[in-house]
Structure formats: C-alpha cells, structure tokens
Design a protein around this nucleic acid. Sequence first.
DNA 1: TCGATAGGAAAGCGCTGACTTGCCTATGAT
DNA 2: ATCATAGGCAAGTCAGCGCTTTCCTATCGA
Lengths: 96, 96
Amino acid sequence: MDDVFKALADPTRRRILDELADRDSQSLFEICARLTTKHGLGLSRQGISQHLAVLEAAGLVRTRRQGRYKFHDLNTEPLERILNRWLRPDVPESAQ
Amino acid sequence: MDDVFKALADPTRRRILDELADRDSQSLFEICARLTTKHGLGLSRQGISQHLAVLEAAGLVRTRRQGRYKFHDLNTEPLERILNRWLRPDVPESAQ
DNA sequence: TCGATAGGAAAGCGCTGACTTGCCTATGAT
DNA sequence: ATCATAGGCAAGTCAGCGCTTTCCTATCGA
C-alpha cells in the first residue's frame, strides 16, 4: 500500500500508466518508443525499465514473459483501494 | 494535480489526512498532539506545519483562520479526480 | 502593556530517489 | 555457431525532500 503512493509520486511513472491505459500488453521497447515520440520524454531504456519495476512492485503493473519479450499490463486494483481510505464509503461497491 | 500525488507520497502526510478524516477543524497544535499520542509520531511542530503546507498547496486540506488559530479541514475533491485518470468511467457520476 | 501562546520563515543536514553508464544474461534469426 | 535483440544488474552522480533548529510575527489574556 505504501508502495502504491510512492509509485504514483513520479510523473514519468504516471505517464507510463497513461500509456498502458491507452494500449495494453506493451513491451519495454514499445513503451520507450511511445514515450519518446508521443510525449517527448528523452529517457534511457534503463530509466524506464526501473520505473516499470517500481510500478510492478506496487502491483500497478502486471507482467508476463513470452519468449524474449516481457509484456506489461495495467492493473487498477490498487488504485481503487486508495480511494476508500479517505473518500466516504458512499462510493458504490461497483467501483471497487 | 502533480502536487496531489507528491503530497500523498509521504506516509506522515497520509496520517495527517487520516486524522483530519477522523475529526475536522483541528488546529496545528491539536494535530501535533494527536499524532504523537495516537500514532506515536515524534515529530517537531515545524515538521507537521510544513506537511500541512504541502497538503494545503495540493488542495487536500482547506484552512481558515480564526483569531490566532488556524483550523484545517480535509478536502477530498482532488482525490476524486484521480479516479477518472485510470479507472474506467464506469464509476458513476455520484462518486465524483 | 507585557508576557504567553499559535503560527510562519529560513537555513542547514542527511537520506532517498531518479537517471545514466557500463557490463552481463537469454532468446531468436541467419 | 554467431550475431543481433530484449531485458536485467550494479555502481555512481546529482537534485529534491523531510526534518530540525533558530529566529520572527501576530493574537489573546493578565
């Protein structure tokens, strides 16, 4: 739970989540390419790799290996848990 | 929006939000006292003051002065905005 | 008016975190 | 078998953040 907030604290990581929300099952290189072209982020491959590791540790990103590729998928479950902490439970159960 | 995530990144600030969610309209000294007694946080008054400033800048805490007192209230509106960024809009409007 | 109380400003320190660079492993194509 | 590709590991650098300390301002009670 602590890791989720830390993971969300970085703007680059939020961009990555945006990117995965837009298109699931991207590899590291795909994400690199899209971040640089679409958002103009000039970041090394290793930098993004580390960000993905943080997101995965926080449970915000799920990964699966396939050959020499590793695909990343967004997992919004931890986000839904955050909101129950301070938002009154008038948030309906369907949102959890 | 950027400030909201940064503000939420620190565990002490989340404790403060918890405290304000539990009881509204607390002064700085009240918050200090409650954090130390209830949560065992050994933090200086100035430390908490700075945390409150960060929370206020992020819009998560609203303040109003009354004489020499400054009361703090929780404002969950920025949290509700986070919902829409990655969670699908199947979250009903009533939760926003 | 004087002192106590509530809060703010600014400087300084230590530590964490983001990012790069260089090297290493594993899978796939030729 | 060999080389390119996809990805990981580790060390090192640098800026930002949390926290303390010290000093300063403003409001209230005696």
